[in-house]
Design a protein around this nucleic acid. Sequence first.
DNA 1: TAGAGCCTGGACAACGTTGTCAGATGCGAG
DNA 2: CTCGCATCTGACAACGTTGTCCAGGCTCTA
Lengths: 349, 349
Amino acid sequence: MPETTRRADRLPGTRYGNRPTMKDVAARAGVGLKTVSRVVNGEPGVTPDTERRVQEAIEALGFRRNDSARVLRKGRTASIGLVLEDLADPFYGPLSRAVEEVARAHGALLINGSSAEDPEREQELALALCARRVDGLVVIPAGDDHRYLEPEIRAGVATVFVDRPAGRIDADVVLSDNYGGARDGVAHLIAHGHRRIGFIGDMPRIHTAAERLRGYRAAMEDAGIAVEERWMSLGATDPERVRRAAEEMLSGPDPVTAIFAGNNRVTVTVIRVLAEQSRQVAFVGFDDIELADLLQPGVTVVAQDAAALGRTAAERLFRQLDGTLVAPERIELPTRLITRGSGELPPAD
Amino acid sequence: MPETTRRADRLPGTRYGNRPTMKDVAARAGVGLKTVSRVVNGEPGVTPDTERRVQEAIEALGFRRNDSARVLRKGRTASIGLVLEDLADPFYGPLSRAVEEVARAHGALLINGSSAEDPEREQELALALCARRVDGLVVIPAGDDHRYLEPEIRAGVATVFVDRPAGRIDADVVLSDNYGGARDGVAHLIAHGHRRIGFIGDMPRIHTAAERLRGYRAAMEDAGIAVEERWMSLGATDPERVRRAAEEMLSGPDPVTAIFAGNNRVTVTVIRVLAEQSRQVAFVGFDDIELADLLQPGVTVVAQDAAALGRTAAERLFRQLDGTLVAPERIELPTRLITRGSGELPPAD
DNA sequence: TAGAGCCTGGACAACGTTGTCAGATGCGAG
DNA sequence: CTCGCATCTGACAACGTTGTCCAGGCTCTA
């Protein structure tokens, strides 16, 4: 029986069961501790015969190296943390996956958690990851003050913010061109003759939402259109409120003839509302959505490349770790207007 | 300057930068090491004055506890691993999120990775997670032999398989009723008058795919319909092959009048193909997809509850850890047929 | 055949934390 | 004034691994 068996008696809370350690393997193989370490890590300087004996002992005992101890000794964990808003959001799936692939290419594991758009939870998560001594952190900010990460960054935790900028801290940031994308999308509607255009977006305290709103305003201003309050709805992404907002701007005298949606969640609800309308209303949404091409009419969108965001951020993170990188930078990825029909409808008034 | 500063010189590979340790905090606060530990962990028996001094030192140095060391000492990592097939697949997003929420409720972090449907990669990932000493493992199997996990399970790693059963090993499994769901879906088409019904699914070595195929065959047999080879396509989920398969069964003499799709990815491609057809073809798909209700016609699906799968699995995992659970069990969650139009079209021949 | 040098193996300390235990301090009671 | 007790504090070992360093045995050459 492995020597560590006794531990279970002393620490009932332990959960390793009775894991054999290198010491146990060494004892069984009749070699020294360090020799086992060498075999496990494929280090040179072990005769084939010794190696075989060690391997047999490993098999027999079902030994697996304890990486916690290894990490403690080596200082690197070969893992990176990802704090995002909601794993279940289809926008973040490809982003996570891209981060994961880059991590994998660098031999690192990915630990991730959702902030649920709660700044406190974001902080809690990020710091928990730091306590685990992740080598780096990719953060999709929920809050707008990230000074709490300063000691961590100083201590060597590579950090990259994605999708939204860091607050009150100088750090690498990878963003989509939210302002430009929204402006282009709205300008597209204007180019098709619309003047009363509604905007439904998220809370302006969210950077992406604010930027897209700014793009909307800019496009309107460029066209010399004075925006009316009732054309804008900010802060609602839950279906009920979006629905109410859309229905309001579509009713009354001088209803909007087109709507611009600030993100994918707003888009799906607005499309539902529009499908119920008797007259046709033009539509452009920020973020692409699946099957957008199959709807009648096809949904015109301003698409951002979520995977590219994740990939770029993760690559930058590993370059920070390599020491290749010096000063923090702000990288902006372009968006792409995909016309499919809904954005090309003429005003129906 | 913290005493550990020297480390950087000795181990250039280290990545902690120069993290202060409890020892450094203790030195600065003029107290003992253990007292710092007590303060950090909120243990009783520290005078307010001492606590304040320690807190100040912690602030000043930017100290954060090293959980790697803590884990080594305590035996529990308060983290669980999730091995899934593809984080970017919209089906797995809600599942991951549900697992994460349960983990969070138990104070655990989630480490996850994608197997990309590669059994070797699944094993590599699962074992890497075990080496990190995760307390438990939720696995969506890619392979069909999980004996490699036996030593881990014996060593106390709580393990639950989701979406697909474990292979050659006795373990907890949480599944959807793939057989029943597919049978119901196909029976629904038969009830609407169809007899020549196509089936497009994934490789039968994937359990869910095999079960759904079995459900298809059962429904056909129940109706006394002899299935023809050319009505079935197995092993293709990439758009090109699905497209070819669908077009083939829709051409020639006696084409199918309805198609049953084995999963969400097949569904989106088949819907595209059907949209191009001149005549109407009935359709039912396994897995719900976003906006399915807005297409013309609405897409009838057999929906499974991905979040419930994840939640159930994770809860079971933590009950294993509590010791509440004894024998492995196989839990099957029901599916739900959602009629939206496409599955109720009559045969067009 | 002796000496130099190489190859293999092992003893030991250290990584940063927590559990154990014993020492120090202060207070009240006899 | 002293003893006992409770409260607070700190020294020390241990968790399982890896880096350092040295010992012993071997081979090869002079």
